[in-house]
Computed example of a mutant assay.
Amino acid sequence: MIFLPLPFVVALLLLILLVVMLRGDEPAKRNWAFLALVALCALQSVVVGLRWGYDVTALRFALPVLASGVPPLVLASFHSLIGCEERNVPGAAWVHATPTIGALMLVLLAPRYIDFALIVEYVGYALALLNLARPGTDALGEARFEGAVAAHRALVIAAFSLCLSALFDLAIILDFEWTKGANIGLIVSNANMLGLLFIGLTAMVADRARALPAVNAILDEEPTPEPQDREILDRIDHLLVSEKLARDENLTLSRLARRAGLPARQISTAVNRLAGKNVSQYINDFRIAEACRLLRETDMSVTSAMFESGFQTKSNFNREFRRVTALSPASWRQQSRAEKIAGSQ
Protein backbone atom coordinates (compact mmCIF):
# COMPACT_ATOMS: atom_id res chain seq x y z
CA MET A 1 0.00 0.00 0.00
CA ILE A 2 1.37 3.40 -0.98
CA PHE A 3 2.01 5.68 1.99
CA LEU A 4 0.81 9.23 1.38
CA PRO A 5 1.92 11.68 4.09
CA LEU A 6 -0.71 14.12 5.32
CA PRO A 7 1.32 17.16 4.15
CA PHE A 8 0.99 15.85 0.58
CA VAL A 9 -2.79 15.96 0.96
CA VAL A 10 -2.52 19.55 2.20
CA ALA A 11 -0.28 20.39 -0.76
CA LEU A 12 -2.82 18.88 -3.16
CA LEU A 13 -5.63 20.94 -1.62
CA LEU A 14 -3.53 24.09 -1.86
CA LEU A 15 -2.68 23.38 -5.50
CA ILE A 16 -6.38 22.91 -6.27
CA LEU A 17 -7.01 26.20 -4.50
CA LEU A 18 -4.29 27.84 -6.59
CA VAL A 19 -5.81 26.55 -9.83
CA VAL A 20 -9.25 27.81 -8.77
CA MET A 21 -7.80 31.25 -8.06
CA LEU A 22 -5.97 31.32 -11.40
CA ARG A 23 -8.96 30.18 -13.41
CA GLY A 24 -11.41 32.40 -11.57
CA ASP A 25 -9.51 35.64 -12.13
CA GLU A 26 -8.81 37.58 -15.27
CA PRO A 27 -5.07 38.29 -15.72
CA ALA A 28 -5.58 41.96 -14.89
CA LYS A 29 -7.38 41.10 -11.67
CA ARG A 30 -4.90 38.57 -10.31
CA ASN A 31 -3.28 39.37 -7.02
CA TRP A 32 0.14 37.86 -7.49
CA ALA A 33 1.06 38.20 -3.82
CA PHE A 34 -1.84 35.95 -2.81
CA LEU A 35 -1.03 33.48 -5.59
CA ALA A 36 2.63 33.37 -4.55
CA LEU A 37 1.57 32.80 -0.94
CA VAL A 38 -0.59 29.79 -1.81
CA ALA A 39 2.15 28.40 -4.08
CA LEU A 40 4.74 28.77 -1.31
CA CYS A 41 2.45 27.05 1.20
CA ALA A 42 1.97 24.16 -1.25
CA LEU A 43 5.72 23.86 -1.81
CA GLN A 44 6.37 23.90 1.92
CA SER A 45 3.80 21.13 2.40
CA VAL A 46 5.56 18.98 -0.20
CA VAL A 47 8.94 19.52 1.47
CA VAL A 48 7.46 18.68 4.89
CA GLY A 49 6.00 15.48 3.45
CA LEU A 50 9.30 14.45 1.92
CA ARG A 51 11.26 15.32 5.06
CA TRP A 52 9.06 13.66 7.67
CA GLY A 53 7.10 11.20 5.56
CA TYR A 54 10.01 9.71 3.64
CA ASP A 55 12.88 10.84 5.89
CA VAL A 56 14.66 12.90 3.24
CA THR A 57 17.04 14.48 5.73
CA ALA A 58 18.74 16.65 3.12
CA LEU A 59 15.63 18.85 3.10
CA ARG A 60 15.88 19.74 6.79
CA PHE A 61 17.78 22.91 5.89
CA ALA A 62 15.20 23.99 3.31
CA LEU A 63 12.22 23.86 5.68
CA PRO A 64 13.06 26.84 7.94
CA VAL A 65 14.05 28.96 4.94
CA LEU A 66 10.73 28.26 3.22
CA ALA A 67 8.83 28.82 6.48
CA SER A 68 10.48 32.21 6.94
CA GLY A 69 9.05 33.37 3.63
CA VAL A 70 5.40 32.80 4.60
CA PRO A 71 4.79 35.72 7.04
CA PRO A 72 6.21 38.42 4.73
CA LEU A 73 4.06 37.11 1.87
CA VAL A 74 0.98 37.10 4.09
CA LEU A 75 1.58 40.73 5.02
CA ALA A 76 2.37 41.69 1.42
CA SER A 77 -0.82 40.00 0.27
CA PHE A 78 -3.02 41.99 2.60
CA HIS A 79 -1.03 45.16 2.01
CA SER A 80 -2.24 44.94 -1.58
CA LEU A 81 -5.77 45.51 -0.26
CA ILE A 82 -5.03 48.76 1.55
CA GLY A 83 -5.08 52.22 0.01
CA CYS A 84 -2.19 53.26 -2.19
CA GLU A 85 -1.25 56.17 0.05
CA GLU A 86 -0.85 53.71 2.92
CA ARG A 87 1.38 51.18 1.23
CA ASN A 88 3.94 53.22 -0.71
CA VAL A 89 6.81 52.76 1.73
CA PRO A 90 10.24 52.95 0.06
CA GLY A 91 12.38 49.87 0.60
CA ALA A 92 9.54 47.83 2.12
CA ALA A 93 10.25 44.86 -0.17
CA TRP A 94 13.85 44.67 1.02
CA VAL A 95 12.79 44.90 4.65
CA HIS A 96 10.44 41.94 4.26
CA ALA A 97 13.15 39.92 2.52
CA THR A 98 15.26 40.16 5.67
CA PRO A 99 13.61 37.23 7.53
CA THR A 100 14.35 34.79 4.71
CA ILE A 101 17.93 36.03 4.37
CA GLY A 102 18.33 35.82 8.14
CA ALA A 103 16.89 32.30 8.23
CA LEU A 104 19.33 31.19 5.55
CA MET A 105 22.25 32.65 7.52
CA LEU A 106 21.11 30.97 10.72
CA VAL A 107 20.70 27.60 9.00
CA LEU A 108 24.28 27.86 7.73
CA LEU A 109 25.94 29.42 10.78
CA ALA A 110 23.80 28.85 13.89
CA PRO A 111 21.03 26.29 13.23
CA ARG A 112 20.24 25.87 16.93
CA TYR A 113 18.65 29.33 16.99
CA ILE A 114 16.46 28.98 13.91
CA ASP A 115 13.33 27.83 15.78
CA PHE A 116 13.51 30.78 18.17
CA ALA A 117 13.97 33.14 15.23
CA LEU A 118 10.93 31.71 13.46
CA ILE A 119 8.79 32.14 16.58
CA VAL A 120 9.81 35.79 16.85
CA GLU A 121 9.18 36.34 13.14
CA TYR A 122 5.74 34.71 13.11
CA VAL A 123 4.55 36.53 16.23
CA GLY A 124 5.94 39.83 14.93
CA TYR A 125 4.13 39.54 11.62
CA ALA A 126 0.95 38.42 13.38
CA LEU A 127 1.05 41.63 15.42
CA ALA A 128 1.65 43.62 12.23
CA LEU A 129 -1.43 42.01 10.65
CA LEU A 130 -3.56 42.75 13.71
CA ASN A 131 -2.35 46.35 13.64
CA LEU A 132 -3.34 46.50 9.97
CA ALA A 133 -6.78 45.17 10.90
CA ARG A 134 -7.24 47.59 13.81
CA PRO A 135 -9.04 50.38 11.86
CA GLY A 136 -11.64 47.89 10.63
CA THR A 137 -12.84 47.34 7.08
CA ASP A 138 -12.00 50.92 6.09
CA ALA A 139 -8.31 49.97 6.26
CA LEU A 140 -8.79 47.77 3.18
CA GLY A 141 -9.16 50.59 0.70
CA GLU A 142 -8.56 48.40 -2.36
CA ALA A 143 -11.10 45.76 -1.33
CA ARG A 144 -14.55 45.87 -2.88
CA PHE A 145 -17.05 47.18 -0.36
CA GLU A 146 -19.07 44.00 -0.75
CA GLY A 147 -16.09 41.81 0.15
CA ALA A 148 -14.44 44.09 2.70
CA VAL A 149 -15.98 42.35 5.73
CA ALA A 150 -14.86 38.89 4.58
CA ALA A 151 -11.39 40.21 3.72
CA HIS A 152 -11.07 41.83 7.14
CA ARG A 153 -12.03 38.57 8.83
CA ALA A 154 -9.51 36.73 6.67
CA LEU A 155 -6.86 39.22 7.77
CA VAL A 156 -7.55 38.50 11.44
CA ILE A 157 -7.64 34.73 10.85
CA ALA A 158 -4.32 34.92 9.01
CA ALA A 159 -2.79 36.69 12.02
CA PHE A 160 -4.00 33.98 14.38
CA SER A 161 -2.78 31.31 11.95
CA LEU A 162 0.72 32.77 12.22
CA CYS A 163 0.40 32.69 16.01
CA LEU A 164 -0.70 29.07 15.78
CA SER A 165 2.37 28.25 13.71
CA ALA A 166 4.54 29.97 16.32
CA LEU A 167 2.97 27.81 19.03
CA PHE A 168 3.78 24.69 17.03
CA ASP A 169 7.39 25.88 16.69
CA LEU A 170 7.48 26.27 20.46
CA ALA A 171 6.08 22.73 20.79
CA ILE A 172 8.91 21.48 18.57
CA ILE A 173 11.50 23.11 20.82
CA LEU A 174 9.91 21.62 23.94
CA ASP A 175 9.65 18.20 22.31
CA PHE A 176 13.38 18.23 21.60
CA GLU A 177 14.05 19.23 25.20
CA TRP A 178 11.75 16.66 26.80
CA THR A 179 11.63 13.66 24.44
CA LYS A 180 14.63 14.23 22.16
CA GLY A 181 12.29 14.87 19.23
CA ALA A 182 10.23 11.68 19.52
CA ASN A 183 7.01 13.43 18.44
CA ILE A 184 8.51 15.86 15.98
CA GLY A 185 7.00 14.27 12.87
CA LEU A 186 3.47 14.36 14.29
CA ILE A 187 3.83 17.96 15.46
CA VAL A 188 5.20 19.18 12.14
CA SER A 189 2.52 17.37 10.13
CA ASN A 190 -0.32 18.83 12.20
CA ALA A 191 1.26 22.27 12.17
CA ASN A 192 1.59 22.09 8.42
CA MET A 193 -1.98 20.91 7.91
CA LEU A 194 -3.62 23.53 10.12
CA GLY A 195 -1.41 26.56 9.64
CA LEU A 196 -0.81 26.42 5.91
CA LEU A 197 -4.36 25.37 5.06
CA PHE A 198 -5.79 28.25 7.10
CA ILE A 199 -3.43 30.70 5.44
CA GLY A 200 -4.26 29.36 1.99
CA LEU A 201 -8.01 29.61 2.56
CA THR A 202 -7.77 33.14 3.95
CA ALA A 203 -5.71 34.09 0.91
CA MET A 204 -8.49 32.89 -1.38
CA VAL A 205 -11.17 34.77 0.59
CA ALA A 206 -9.18 37.99 0.61
CA ASP A 207 -8.22 37.61 -3.04
CA ARG A 208 -11.91 37.48 -3.97
CA ALA A 209 -12.40 40.86 -2.30
CA ARG A 210 -9.92 42.63 -4.56
CA ALA A 211 -11.46 44.84 -7.21
CA LEU A 212 -10.57 45.01 -10.88
CA PRO A 213 -7.84 47.59 -11.49
CA ALA A 214 -9.15 50.97 -12.51
CA VAL A 215 -8.36 52.15 -16.02
CA ASN A 216 -6.27 55.30 -16.32
CA ALA A 217 -6.67 56.03 -12.63
CA ILE A 218 -4.50 58.92 -11.53
CA LEU A 219 -3.72 59.56 -7.90
CA ASP A 220 -3.50 63.14 -6.78
CA GLU A 221 -0.20 63.34 -4.98
CA GLU A 222 -0.74 66.90 -3.82
CA PRO A 223 -2.05 67.24 -0.27
CA THR A 224 -5.74 68.05 -0.32
CA PRO A 225 -6.96 70.85 1.98
CA GLU A 226 -9.13 69.32 4.68
CA PRO A 227 -12.79 70.34 4.12
CA GLN A 228 -15.61 70.09 6.61
CA ASP A 229 -17.08 66.65 7.15
CA ARG A 230 -20.48 67.75 5.84
CA GLU A 231 -18.94 68.98 2.61
CA ILE A 232 -17.15 65.67 2.16
CA LEU A 233 -20.32 63.65 2.64
CA ASP A 234 -22.26 65.92 0.28
CA ARG A 235 -19.66 65.27 -2.40
CA ILE A 236 -19.73 61.53 -1.74
CA ASP A 237 -23.53 61.44 -1.75
CA HIS A 238 -23.57 63.21 -5.10
CA LEU A 239 -21.25 60.60 -6.59
CA LEU A 240 -23.22 57.72 -5.14
CA VAL A 241 -26.65 58.97 -6.18
CA SER A 242 -26.36 61.32 -9.15
CA GLU A 243 -23.54 59.44 -10.84
CA LYS A 244 -24.82 56.06 -9.59
CA LEU A 245 -21.41 55.10 -8.29
CA ALA A 246 -22.98 52.98 -5.55
CA ARG A 247 -24.09 50.49 -8.20
CA ASP A 248 -20.49 49.75 -9.19
CA GLU A 249 -19.81 46.28 -7.76
CA ASN A 250 -16.05 46.93 -7.95
CA LEU A 251 -16.23 50.15 -5.96
CA THR A 252 -13.51 50.51 -3.33
CA LEU A 253 -12.58 53.23 -0.89
CA SER A 254 -9.56 54.11 -3.02
CA ARG A 255 -11.66 54.47 -6.17
CA LEU A 256 -14.24 56.52 -4.35
CA ALA A 257 -11.45 58.78 -3.07
CA ARG A 258 -10.08 59.24 -6.58
CA ARG A 259 -13.49 60.15 -7.98
CA ALA A 260 -14.13 62.57 -5.14
CA GLY A 261 -10.65 64.07 -5.33
CA LEU A 262 -10.16 63.51 -1.60
CA PRO A 263 -7.82 61.38 0.51
CA ALA A 264 -9.40 58.08 1.53
CA ARG A 265 -8.62 58.78 5.17
CA GLN A 266 -10.67 62.00 5.11
CA ILE A 267 -13.64 60.19 3.61
CA SER A 268 -13.44 57.43 6.19
CA THR A 269 -13.15 59.91 9.04
CA ALA A 270 -16.05 62.03 7.80
CA VAL A 271 -18.31 59.00 7.41
CA ASN A 272 -17.37 57.71 10.85
CA ARG A 273 -18.04 61.07 12.49
CA LEU A 274 -21.29 62.02 10.79
CA ALA A 275 -22.87 58.67 9.96
CA GLY A 276 -21.49 56.66 12.86
CA LYS A 277 -20.55 53.71 10.62
CA ASN A 278 -17.75 52.55 8.35
CA VAL A 279 -17.61 53.40 4.66
CA SER A 280 -18.65 49.90 3.59
CA GLN A 281 -21.87 50.14 5.57
CA TYR A 282 -22.46 53.68 4.33
CA ILE A 283 -22.19 52.60 0.68
CA ASN A 284 -24.35 49.56 1.28
CA ASP A 285 -27.04 51.79 2.78
CA PHE A 286 -27.35 53.47 -0.63
CA ARG A 287 -27.40 50.11 -2.36
CA ILE A 288 -30.12 48.79 -0.07
CA ALA A 289 -32.15 51.96 -0.65
CA GLU A 290 -31.93 51.35 -4.40
CA ALA A 291 -32.85 47.69 -3.94
CA CYS A 292 -35.88 48.72 -1.87
CA ARG A 293 -36.97 51.12 -4.60
CA LEU A 294 -36.73 48.38 -7.21
CA LEU A 295 -38.59 45.89 -5.04
CA ARG A 296 -41.31 48.44 -4.30
CA GLU A 297 -41.78 50.00 -7.74
CA THR A 298 -41.09 47.10 -10.11
CA ASP A 299 -41.82 43.40 -10.50
CA MET A 300 -38.11 42.69 -10.76
CA SER A 301 -36.98 39.52 -9.00
CA VAL A 302 -35.03 39.79 -5.76
CA THR A 303 -31.92 38.46 -7.49
CA SER A 304 -32.19 41.02 -10.29
CA ALA A 305 -32.69 43.82 -7.76
CA MET A 306 -29.61 42.57 -5.94
CA PHE A 307 -27.43 42.85 -9.04
CA GLU A 308 -28.94 46.15 -10.16
CA SER A 309 -28.23 47.76 -6.80
CA GLY A 310 -24.54 46.80 -6.83
CA PHE A 311 -24.38 43.55 -4.86
CA GLN A 312 -22.82 40.41 -6.28
CA THR A 313 -23.46 37.76 -3.64
CA LYS A 314 -26.81 36.82 -2.16
CA SER A 315 -25.38 36.19 1.31
CA ASN A 316 -23.96 39.69 1.59
CA PHE A 317 -27.10 41.23 0.10
CA ASN A 318 -29.38 39.43 2.56
CA ARG A 319 -27.15 40.29 5.51
CA GLU A 320 -26.98 43.98 4.63
CA PHE A 321 -30.69 44.09 3.80
CA ARG A 322 -31.53 42.73 7.24
CA ARG A 323 -29.10 45.15 8.87
CA VAL A 324 -30.86 48.12 7.28
CA THR A 325 -34.50 46.99 7.25
CA ALA A 326 -34.58 44.17 9.84
CA LEU A 327 -36.39 42.08 7.18
CA SER A 328 -35.49 39.75 4.36
CA PRO A 329 -35.91 41.21 0.84
CA ALA A 330 -38.96 39.04 0.12
CA SER A 331 -40.61 39.93 3.44
CA TRP A 332 -39.88 43.62 2.93
CA ARG A 333 -41.46 43.56 -0.54
CA GLN A 334 -44.53 41.79 0.79
CA GLN A 335 -44.89 44.26 3.65
CA SER A 336 -44.32 47.24 1.36
CA ARG A 337 -47.01 46.10 -1.06
CA ALA A 338 -49.43 45.43 1.78
CA GLU A 339 -48.87 48.95 3.11
CA LYS A 340 -49.38 50.38 -0.38
CA ILE A 341 -52.69 48.55 -0.78
CA ALA A 342 -53.83 49.63 2.68
CA GLY A 343 -52.90 53.23 1.92
CA SER A 344 -54.88 53.28 -1.31
CA GLN A 345 -58.10 52.12 0.36
Rank of each mutant, 00 (worst) to 15 (best):
M1A: 13
M1R: 15
P7F: 02
P7R: 01
V9Y: 09
V10N: 01
L12R: 02
V20Y: 09
G24D: 03
A28H: 10
A28I: 09
W32K: 09
L35M: 11
A36T: 06
L37Y: 04
L40V: 06
Q44P: 00
W52A: 07
Y54T: 11
Y54A: 10
S68N: 05
G69F: 00
P72F: 05
L75Y: 09
S77H: 10
S80M: 14
L81D: 01
C84T: 15
E86M: 11
N88V: 05
N88R: 11
P90M: 03
G91W: 12
V95S: 02
A97I: 03
P99I: 07
P99D: 02
I101H: 06
A110D: 13
I114M: 15
D115F: 13
F116D: 15
F116V: 12
A117S: 09
Y122D: 04
V123F: 12
L127Q: 11
L130I: 03
N131W: 13
L132N: 00
P135N: 06
G136F: 09
E142G: 05
E142K: 11
E142P: 00
F145P: 07
G147S: 01
G147P: 05
A148D: 02
V149W: 01
A150Q: 12
R153Q: 08
R153A: 11
L155G: 06
I157N: 08
I157C: 13
C163I: 12
A166V: 02
L167Y: 06
D169Q: 15
D175Q: 05
D175A: 11
D175V: 02
D175N: 14
W178G: 04
V188N: 13
N192T: 11
M193D: 09
L197W: 04
L201A: 14
A206D: 03
D207L: 04
R208W: 10
R210Q: 15
I218E: 12
R230P: 06
D234E: 15
V241L: 12
V241D: 03
E243S: 13
E243F: 14
E249F: 00
L253Y: 07
G261R: 14
P263F: 01
R265C: 01
T269E: 14
V271Y: 14
N272K: 13
R273M: 06
D285I: 01
I288R: 10
I288C: 12
A291P: 09
R293Y: 12
R296Y: 10
S301L: 10
E320Q: 10
S336M: 15
R337T: 10
E339L: 09
S344G: 13
Q345I: 12
